[in-house]
């Protein structure tokens, strides 16, 4: 739910990074956080377990430039990827303006990708969104690992909607900002 505050001249968008456990959602946010000028970002909050698995969500606010005198700010969230945290995932999607689906390119993680995508579709529906219309970008992460699926297979299995997609190695920052820029565009273009 984009929030336009006419008193402070601010527009906030909520973007949620979704995907199976250990696919690199938090890594995406961490890279964005590390690479962003301190004046452009707020604190990054990670509600994680002792073993650094996301327990509830990660959150970071990111200031962009201005549009017609309105400051544009992104609120980036990740969901916990592990299957048993489904109730939490559902809550975090509330009021989302756009979703980045981060898929793990390794062959043995395809089932987990498919389950997570299915789960995203269900949870969007429960929040009153339609998977076919919400701004969405796909990221094929971990392209540097051995034994990965080809991009064609990733597209065929996971991108039936044929939205924009990016190959990424989030831990090295490859594809991270391209993905963020693309979802920001999708979200803002939807406001037209």
């Amino acid at each position: 739910m984009s929030f336009i505050n006419y008193a402070t001249k601010e527009i906030n968008f909520k973007i949620v990074y979704y995907g199976p456990g250990l696919c690199g959602k938090t890594t995406n946010l961490q890279y964005i956080y590390d690479q962003t000028d301190p004046t452009q970002k707020g604190k990054m909050i990670s509600l994680s377990t002792e073993t650094e698995r996301t327990l509830f969500f990660d959150f970071m606010p990111l200031k962009l430039g201005e549009i017609k005198g309105f400051k544009v700010r992104l609120h980036l969230y990740t969901v916990p990827g592990q299957i048993f945290y489904d109730a939490s995932r559902k809550l975090i999607l509330k009021g989302a303006d756009g979703v980045v689906f981060v898929a793990d390119s390794q062959k043995d993680r395809m089932d987990a990708n498919l389950d997570s995508l299915e789960n995203l579709i269900d949870n969007l529906r429960e929040n009153g969104f339609d998977y076919n219309t919400i701004p969405l970008v796909m990221q094929w992460n971990k392209r540097d690992l051995p034994d990965i699926e080809s991009v064609e297979v990733m597209e065929e299995m996971l991108n039936k909607r044929k939205v924009e997609s990016f190959e990424a190695v989030a831990i090295k920052g490859i594809g991270v900002f391209e993905t963020l820029k693309s979802i920001s565009k999708a979200v803002m273009m939807k406001m037209k």
Binding site: S2, I11, T36, L62, G65, K181, M191, K192
Partner: peptide
């Protein structure tokens, strides 16, 4: 309806510019 005034003529280039400043 108000938001349409802000976003009605936004272009890819406007969004690109925000990122150049923002990151």
């Amino acid at each position: 309806s108000i938001h349409q005034d802000i976003f009605s003529d936004i272009t890819d280039e406007d969004i690109e510019k925000m990122f150049r400043k923002g990151s």
